[in-house]
Simulated scan of single mutants.
Amino acid sequence: MQRIYEPENLMEAELLLGMLASEGVKACLQGRDLIGGTGELPAMGLLGLAVDNEQARYARELIDAYNGASPMADDELDSFPDVLDC
């Protein structure tokens, strides 16, 4: 297994795990249990996404595409009529 990415927080990590899984890449999240130690442990580098060596390149490409994506022009709240805008 290779550690391919360090997410900024647990929410980003879970989002990326789901995205990778939807593309057929089995990933594991390293450091999930260390989050509770923030304040006593260094804040950076606790979380890491790891994948099998054979899928590392593809997983990096997917994450790079995710990080480089920008919102769609038509992706505004008006296009989601059942969502409350608080």
Score class of each variant (00 low, 15 high):
residue 1 M to C: 07
residue 1 M to R: 06
residue 1 M to V: 10
residue 2 Q to H: 08
residue 3 R to N: 12
residue 4 I to K: 01
residue 5 Y to M: 03
residue 6 E to Y: 15
residue 7 P to G: 09
residue 8 E to V: 02
residue 9 N to A: 11
residue 10 L to I: 08
residue 10 L to C: 04
residue 11 M to V: 08
residue 12 E to K: 04
residue 13 A to Q: 04
residue 13 A to P: 07
residue 13 A to T: 03
residue 13 A to D: 05
residue 14 E to P: 03
residue 15 L to M: 09
residue 15 L to W: 07
residue 15 L to K: 07
residue 16 L to A: 08
residue 16 L to H: 03
residue 17 L to W: 02
residue 17 L to G: 00
residue 18 G to W: 09
residue 19 M to L: 14
residue 19 M to W: 06
residue 20 L to H: 00
residue 20 L to D: 00
residue 24 G to S: 13
residue 25 V to D: 06
residue 26 K to D: 11
residue 26 K to N: 11
residue 27 A to P: 01
residue 27 A to L: 00
residue 28 C to H: 10
residue 28 C to D: 08
residue 28 C to I: 08
residue 29 L to H: 03
residue 29 L to Y: 06
residue 30 Q to W: 06
residue 31 G to R: 06
residue 33 D to G: 01
residue 33 D to M: 05
residue 33 D to F: 05
residue 33 D to R: 02
residue 34 L to Y: 13
residue 34 L to F: 14
residue 35 I to W: 08
residue 35 I to R: 10
residue 36 G to P: 01
residue 37 G to Y: 09
residue 37 G to P: 00
residue 38 T to N: 04
residue 39 G to A: 07
residue 40 E to A: 09
residue 40 E to Y: 14
residue 40 E to G: 09
residue 40 E to L: 12
residue 41 L to V: 06
residue 41 L to P: 06
residue 42 P to E: 01
residue 43 A to H: 13
residue 44 M to W: 06
residue 44 M to A: 01
residue 44 M to I: 12
residue 45 G to C: 07
residue 46 L to F: 03
residue 48 G to F: 12
residue 48 G to Y: 02
residue 48 G to Q: 07
residue 48 G to W: 05
residue 49 L to I: 14
residue 49 L to S: 00
residue 50 A to G: 13
residue 50 A to H: 03
residue 51 V to F: 05
residue 52 D to A: 11
residue 55 Q to G: 01
residue 55 Q to C: 11
residue 56 A to Q: 04
residue 56 A to Y: 06
residue 57 R to A: 15
residue 57 R to D: 13
residue 58 Y to W: 12
residue 60 R to D: 13
residue 63 I to P: 03
residue 63 I to A: 00
residue 65 A to Q: 13
residue 66 Y to S: 06
residue 66 Y to E: 02
residue 66 Y to C: 04
residue 67 N to Y: 04
residue 67 N to V: 09
residue 68 G to D: 01
residue 68 G to K: 04
residue 71 P to C: 12
residue 71 P to H: 12
residue 71 P to G: 10
residue 72 M to V: 14
residue 72 M to Q: 14
residue 73 A to C: 00
residue 73 A to R: 00
residue 73 A to M: 00
residue 73 A to V: 02
residue 76 E to P: 02
residue 77 L to C: 14
residue 77 L to P: 15
residue 77 L to Y: 11
residue 79 S to N: 12
residue 79 S to V: 07
residue 79 S to A: 11
residue 79 S to Q: 10
residue 79 S to M: 09
residue 80 F to W: 08
residue 80 F to N: 09
residue 81 P to E: 06
residue 83 V to A: 15
residue 85 D to Y: 04
residue 86 C to G: 13
residue 86 C to F: 07
